[in-house]
Design a protein around this nucleic acid. Structure first.
Lengths: 120, 120
DNA sequence: TGTTGACTTGGAGCTACTCCAGGTCGCTAA
DNA sequence: TTAGCGACCTGGAGTAGCTCCAAGTCAACA
């Protein structure tokens, strides 16, 4: 698979894939005779995972830590660490969602005021 | 009011307030004899508004547009424009919340898998 | 007369990309 | 055979939205 296809399949942009590789968030990507990156299915799957983690707003440093853990030989501790990262991030997400909800309430209120639909 | 008090009152950091002023997102802040910024209540209120808009994830360019409209002499068109910005942003917010919700579902699933609570 | 503490400025650094210039390589068309 | 095309490569600059820092000023206090 070329980088273009990997991008289409994972939902990341071509630039982002190269950036993630440089940042050590993927295992080293194999190259063909021309020096082009070739993406085996397992790598595309991992990129898709990264895209989802990014969509949750996980910061890069944590994605890097997670990547190292995922590509390490798994042991009980390593799996526990992965879980800890995900659980910790889940808490952040919940907080973020609550913030957004509050923000939207504020916006709705503002809109009501500007529309003259405010009762005060 | 000093910048420190304005920061405490609005929820923005001192640096962010200075940054917002430079970026034209506030009217010019009056200075005392020493050259220190002095914040009248109306300005603190506006900073608080900016903090809330930021919390909704409104991009800077839009906050700038909105600031110009709010500090212009109001007319029917200007109020309509303000409303349009807020409404447009509300749509973005709703989308963002949906994305976060999907992301959290994915995370929950991942956590279930790693915890061995997955049934598949 | 220092020293402290709150402010000032300009500018560098950060995250997570995104874009760009300049170059290589294999393929097709003239 | 040569010219052009399109997909890729690299290193580096640019972006948003802050955040931090160094160096300087000024009033007040010991």
């Amino acid at each position: 698979m070329t980088i273009q296809e990997a991008a289409a399949a994972s939902g990341l942009s071509i630039d982002t894939i190269r950036f993630y590789e440089k940042a050590g968030m993927t295992p080293p990507v194999p190259r063909d005779a021309r020096g082009w990156r070739t993406f085996p299915p397992s790598l595309v799957e991992w990129l898709t995972n990264l895209a989802r983690l990014r969509a949750t707003g996980m910061p890069m440093v944590e994605m890097q830590r997670f990547a190292r853990l995922v590509h390490a030989t798994p042991s009980l501790e390593i799996i526990a660490e992965r879980l800890a990262i995900l659980r910790g991030h889940n808490v952040c997400l919940a907080r973020r969602r609550a913030e957004l909800e509050a923000a939207q309430e504020y916006l709705d209120h503002k809109i009501a005021v500007y529309s003259g639909k405010d009762t005060r």
